[in-house]
Amino acid sequence: MPTKAVSLNVDKSGSFAAQTVRISQGDENSTSIVATILDGAQPFDLTGKSVRFKCELPGGKVFVDDSVTVSDAKTGVVSFTPSVEVAAAAGKVTGALFEVFCDGYAIHTTKMEIDVDSTPTVANGAVCELTMLNDYRSGEQASWTHPTRSGMAFAGWYKDAALKYPCSASDTEGAAYAKFVKVADLFQFLGCSFNMSGNVPAEYTTPRFSYIMSVPEGAALIENGWYFKKVSDPTKPDVRSLSYNNIVQTGNKIFSSLTFNKVPVRLYEKKFSTKAFVKYTTADGTTVEAVEADYDAFTPAEIADAVLTHPMATQADKDYAAAIKAAVTQEGAA
């Protein structure tokens, strides 16, 4: 369990830095608070004393909890794991402190703030958000929607904030955790190349945009491909093109390439702009499409320049690229 160390003081005559602890909403075991209680600059001896936690919950309710462990009485160290009541609602838990009881009276420490985060970060950069299933899963399954986040792809509904227990298609009501993963983690643009077979670079060529694509853990791929701009008029809506040449890789990944067949010389200096997509079904039956945030855009002439300077290009590769550059020069002179 993650721990958060704080220092609190029973001598409140001085000025003290603000102490903040962040925990995950709905997960009472997300963080353990380890507090060193001081008396001025010295440890406050807790020998023979009892300690309890006290705070004001979002909404104004005062909450106290006796389940504080004195870990080291001589050095004033206590530990406390926020309970389900503290983690129940997103927001600021204010006025949080420890009460130390001795000889029938209570001594209060300085205060800390507990930030109950509704979007905790979990493993591998994923985040989750507690929300209501019935806001997204009413009616027929084909009509189900899902929450969205900028730069993130929805990766399924889960029953716990640690994202260990996925929901099923039969879960349509009540609260659940929406998992999100970074869209950028689903796509890796490998670069551009030419398909030299059957092409005459002085007249036409076939540029190729290659990618590694993946779906979130536990999801099943429906289809994948690209959105690309029409070179003749980039202002028109993107063309959606499915991939039919997937090569399965390890780790939920596939390799795939988009080729633009027999591009004529007059378009050798035009940008070809693509962005990849994957469409998948999560374990709970939600259909999702994730799309690259930005276009990968290159002209055939730019690809030729890259080939000519590439340390691993063969002579045949370089001769082909040089023929494209010569065709561009000739086209410009015509």
Rank of each mutant, 00 (worst) to 15 (best):
N261R: 12
K164F: 08
D72W: 06
M213P: 04
D117L: 02
A290P: 01
T259E: 13
D135V: 10
A106S: 14
V51L: 06
T235C: 10
A334K: 14
A322W: 00
Q42N: 14
T205I: 15
F194K: 03
V307R: 01
E289H: 00
W226Q: 04
A184D: 12
A169V: 15
Q330N: 13
S193E: 09
P43C: 04
S256C: 11
E269Y: 02
A126P: 04
S168Y: 09
N195S: 07
G60M: 08
V21F: 05
A73N: 10
K61E: 15
K275Y: 08
Q188D: 12
I212T: 12
Y268T: 09
E140C: 11
A17L: 10
H108C: 08
P166R: 08
A89L: 15
Y280E: 03
G59V: 03
R240P: 03
V51H: 02
G251L: 12
Y177L: 01
K74A: 14
G104Q: 11
G174N: 04
D115K: 09
L97G: 04
V93F: 07
A306E: 06
K236E: 15
I324L: 09
E217Y: 11
N261Q: 13
F44W: 00
A88N: 12
K182C: 08
A18L: 07
M132S: 15
D233I: 08
D233F: 12
